[in-house]
């Protein structure tokens, strides 16, 4: 099973050597597509879903430009495997919880994933570390063209690519950037950011947490308007306007903390490190919170002996499905808390 190979290593999109990576963790672009001549997923029976799955799987697996890829049958796989893919951001909770024939084609380097029979027949996604949306767009555009030559997409010249939910209509593009904003959180400025985002038709949701709650101050910022704006314009707005502005605010907040509240900041960071180095039982929620503070400390030069890659790796390795798959067995929550603490101590001491 290829999934075991994934669980023990760092995702490429989580790499620290990338543009603005102290604040921008990763970039993702996804395209929503549907096959012409088929019903959308909510009105399909299993036979039609199977037909769609087979058509799209064959089309994607036969493409030359994708490099080393493999297919994961989500309907047939275990719950733990599905959770692992969610933790690595390769599939959505929606696909995991879905019904009937469905699956995902994943590139071994984890920079591409094609979910089949999620809300739409096809959800293509391309990932990159740091702020790298231009590259993502070029890549996904090529892949989309190549698939579009093999199958016929549901498309109307007036409304664009037709999607199950009208909110994805048009280009079907969702540009998402994952950012780490502990500075704005500590200086109480997140509310301002949320308001500005609302005015700009952007969605912000917390990452790693449940619903909108952000554990560890990680946020995903995405566009909402997909009709009447070209893909290039959406990408350009993120690259030149939206994300640079957010990065600037976060940097200002961090600078202000260094000048005004250096003691509070250092206390927070040192406590995080001390707890992570010595805890014997730690929940994923607490680990995430402390790792976020530690990450800020390393990025601000307050802690020198730990690398960002180590912290990024720990974000993945300490999540429930990763712990269990790497251990090779199912674990109850307390056993997971023990193993999580062991993993953290081993990497940080």
């Amino acid at each position: 099973m290829r999934l075991n190979e994934l669980s023990s290593r760092l995702s490429q999109w989580f790499c620290s050597e990338s543009p603005l990576s102290d604040i921008v963790i990763s970039s993702r672009i996804r395209l929503a597509r549907n096959l012409a001549g088929h019903k959308f997923i909510s009105r399909c029976d299993d036979r039609e879903k199977q037909e769609i799955l087979q058509t799209l799987k064959d089309a994607i697996l036969s493409l030359d430009l994708l490099g080393d890829i493999f297919f994961v049958d989500i309907a047939g796989g275990s719950g733990l495997e599905r959770d692992l893919l969610i933790e690595r951001q390769l599939i959505s909770r929606n696909l995991a919880a879905g019904k009937g024939p469905r699956g995902v084609v994943i590139a071994t380097n984890e920079l591409f994933a094609a979910q089949i029979n999620e809300e739409d027949h096809l959800r293509l996604a391309v990932f990159a570390a740091g702020l790298n949306l231009d590259k993502c767009w070029q890549r996904i555009n090529d892949i989309d063209d190549a698939i579009g030559r093999k199958i016929e997409y549901a498309f109307s010249p007036k409304l664009g690519f037709l999607t199950a939910c009208p909110t994805n209509l048009g280009s079907g593009i969702r540009v998402s950037v994952m950012v780490h904003l502990p500075g704005l959180k500590m200086t109480d400025q997140l509310k301002k950011l949320f308001e500005a985002a609302k005015d700009m038709n952007l969605a912000i949701r917390g990452l790693f947490g449940e619903g909108t709650e952000a554990v560890g101050d990680f946020f995903q910022i995405s566009n909402q308007v997909t009709l009447g704006i070209s893909e290039e314009k959406t990408v350009e707005d993120f690259m030149t306007l939206i994300i640079p502005k957010i990065v600037e605010y976060e940097r200002l907040a961090r600078d202000r903390l260094m000048v005004k509240d250096a003691n509070i900041l250092d206390d927070k960071i040192s406590r995080a490190l001390a707890l992570l180095k010595s805890a014997r039982l730690i929940s994923s929620h607490e680990a995430m919170f402390l790792l976020s503070n530690l990450r800020m400390g390393v990025n601000m030069g307050r802690i020198k002996e730990i690398s960002i890659d180590t912290i990024n790796e720990l974000f993945l390795l300490t999540q429930p499905a990763h712990l269990q798959i790497n251990k090779g067995q199912n674990l109850d929550p307390e056993q997971r808390d023990i193993l999580r603490a062991e993993t953290l101590r081993a990497k940080l001491n």
């Binding site: 109307s156 007036k158 048009g170 593009i173 308007v225 009709l227 009447g228 893909e231 290039e232």
Partner: peptide, 30 residues
């Protein structure tokens, strides 16, 4: 949902963008 927009702008199947190419060159499947 789309800030008042009602008409698609952007790529069409086959990879041509409606914002940069003449409508006549489109090959749509609808």
């Amino acid at each position: 949902a789309h800030d008042g927009n009602l008409t698609h702008k952007g790529k069409i199947p086959g990879g041509i963008s409606t914002s940069t190419n003449s409508v006549e060159s489109q090959t749509a499947s609808s």
